[in-house]
């Protein structure tokens, strides 16, 4: 049989645990417990809303569609801008090492305020217009994005290794930063490669 002192300690512990259980909801409202690593994500899905069916061989004038999405896991609502940019193989991508966006000017933009744990997604329809090629050079003069026409005039050269004229359409994720009261590049981007044919 247990000694009376041991019973006393056990009884005291049981009462203390019961008190903790009773006050825990109140404590939880005052104390914020650390959550997981906060992060945002950006993705591009194919026309079937899947990780497949991406446009690749793109003809002049042919209308293509993908979906661009953003996920917020920052623990609070966030204000995002997605800049759409187009580059040829020699133009710069964003630099993830130093968190620098691509120096190219954006062609199009999306803006969204996304609640924590929520996602935002929009269709992105595009077609290349007035594309032509002369020997090893391919030139696109205009691109239509969601029925708006933008001038690009980026030439690209024949890629003999991969046999094609390649452009990359990519989406940079920017976020509104309370500290600097401005948007900053969120060091995330997603893109698709396009093989141009006339």
């Amino acid at each position: 049989m247990m000694r009376i002192d041991d019973v006393k300690v056990l009884y005291g512990l049981a009462c203390f645990s019961l008190c903790l259980i009773i006050v825990s909801p109140t404590i939880a409202t005052f104390v914020s417990f650390p959550s997981g690593e906060p992060f945002s994500e950006i993705w591009v899905l194919g026309s079937g809303h899947m990780l497949e069916g991406y446009p690749f061989d793109v003809e002049n004038g042919a209308k293509e569609q993908v979906f661009v999405g953003v996920g917020n896991h920052l623990g609070r609502s966030a204000y995002y801008v997605v800049y759409v940019k187009l580059r040829n193989q020699t133009q710069a991508l964003p630099n993830s090492t130093i968190s620098e966006p691509s120096p190219l000017a954006p062609l199009y933009e999306f803006r969204a305020v996304v609640a924590d744990g929520e996602t935002w997604e929009e269709p992105f329809a595009f077609s290349f217009l007035e594309a032509s090629h002369f020997g090893d050079l391919f030139a696109v003069k205009k691109i239509s994005i969601n029925d708006q026409v933008f001038t690009v005039e980026y030439p690209c050269v024949w890629d003999s290794e991969n046999n094609g004229f390649f452009y990359q359409l990519f989406f940079e994720l920017w976020i509104y930063d309370d500290d600097s009261s401005s948007f900053r590049y969120h060091n995330r981007f997603a893109g698709i490669w396009l093989n141009m044919t006339v």
Partner: peptide
Amino acid sequence: LLVRLNDAAELLAEANIAYGL
């Protein structure tokens, strides 16, 4: 409020695009 704020943000994006054009 977020739904309405998103509408406003979308309009701002449209304005920026129209300005660029």
